[in-house]
Design a protein around this nucleic acid. Structure first.
Lengths: 249, 249
DNA sequence: CCAAAAGTGTTAGTCATACACCCATGC
DNA sequence: GCATGGGTGTATGACTAACACTTTTGG
């Protein structure tokens, strides 16, 4: 059985072409089948779609990826499941943003949405493998299409949360490939925080924290001096944090 | 109608006797009547209580103040309403913590709890006026009674959120009277953050930020040098923030 | 005059900011 | 050899941390 009054939606952020993107879809009941376990649940979803013209009308509108919470699913676990099925990735950084519960945020019926944000790197995860590939698309964060319901507000809240988080916790790394250059990292922060950073100071700060691992590798086939590749190690971060490291950008 | 699968619970923090406290209650359906608008809702609540032995058994267990969300109530608005009815105060600082949705967090039926935390100053708000006064009690944060369901976890999450927040935003003032001394403010921070702060440095830092208003008043009838009384002005804070002030403790 | 808490300044070290040029690579 | 982005050091000012005594008040 699904809980008609509760939906779980994921704001999936991706970083490519030096831009922050959000993954949206045009949902149809048949796609939601992927997230559900019983036929009964699918029937229930179909009824909701029929009752709500705005949902059926999704040729024009894009929406956040998610659906109603089944009774037998753990809340955090279900958000993770939605992401796994959508992206094919097992270990995704995922964080609850907040629950939206204004009266009339969705016409015709009452639903609270528990929003999560997730961070992935689109260059390194081929979404073509996803069963939802045809319905799903990346949009630049400052060039979003028309979205359904209050999805815009949810995305904005999530972005704000990401911005707050990225300054004090090393979460930005989840948007980069395993091995990355300091310039990529800097660009990422510039894009998320929407401000220019001083290269020399940025490098000093990051390297002084001592949580990047020098992979002893360099970029290849670039038409300029090849940059060193670093990786981020959560274990090292946890150790340093215990010793009193304060991560700050 | 009430939404059986969604409850709204408030972790109400108060600061007195140099300790941080939480307001808990022993809920009974009759008390919940105060939060509800129709008789039908009360009947629905009563049925839930009957179905769930742990709820009826609340002579032994204390719980968070809150109840199921009625269909016609806005989520944030309902949290505010719960607080107003409980405390009689109109303007309470209130913040959504997160939504708890583990599978067996409440036995016998599935319910998600949207948790909020609130900050009030018990010395300056007489809860005896509340219709719930007899069921409600302050507990020291590190001397809590046995609590129902996962209330402990919810309280701990809320405290963590408060700690994170208090460092970077001037929310601590909501726990103090309108006019307070710098020593009170320092004690408050020491209690919330659970660490000693250097008095001289603390005063310098706070006063340099320039967001406290000198009321030109002093304590009266104290058996020692009377301290100056300050107040906090949100308007001033907002102005300073626009000018780039970074609030940090 | 005593007890109790309020109030105050200086120094040393650390951290943030501002800023401009040479280096390595592919084509 | 040139275009492109990678990589580096220093000086200045700002902030943080550590630390001990005098002042005011009521009883």
């Amino acid at each position: 059985m699904i809980l008609r009054n509760i939906s779980v939606d994921c704001v999936i952020f991706g970083f490519h072409n030096e831009k922050l993107h959000v993954l949206l879809w045009q949902a149809e009941p048949e796609l939601l089948e992927n997230f559900l376990t019983t036929k009964k649940e699918l029937e229930e979803i179909k009824i909701l779609f029929e009752k709500n013209p705005a949902l059926g009308n999704s040729q024009e509108f894009w929406g956040l990826i998610g659906t109603h919470l089944p009774t037998e699913e753990d809340l955090d676990g279900y958000a993770k499941k939605i992401l796994q099925i959508t992206t094919g990735i097992e270990d995704i950084y995922l964080k609850q943003v907040r629950t939206f519960g204004a009266l009339d945020r969705v016409p015709h019926y009452r639903v609270l949405t528990v929003a999560y944000y997730a961070l992935i790197n689109p260059n390194y995860h081929d979404l073509k493998l996803s069963p939802l590939a045809k319905a799903v698309k990346w949009f630049e964060i400052d060039n979003l299409p028309e979205v359904i319901f209050d999805a815009k507000e949810v995305i904005e809240h999530s972005l704000k949360k990401l911005r707050d988080e990225v300054k004090y916790h090393p979460v930005g790394f989840h948007l980069l490939p395993k091995k990355f250059t300091l310039t990529q990292l800097q660009t990422l922060y510039e894009v998320i925080l929407d401000e220019k950073l001083d290269t020399r100071n940025f490098r000093k700060k990051i390297l002084n924290m001592g949580l990047l691992v020098d992979t002893n590798e360099k970029q290849k086939n670039v038409a300029h001096r090849a940059a060193k590749l670093y990786s981020f190690d959560v274990e090292i971060y946890n150790k340093l944090k215990e010793e009193g490291l304060n991560f700050r950008i």
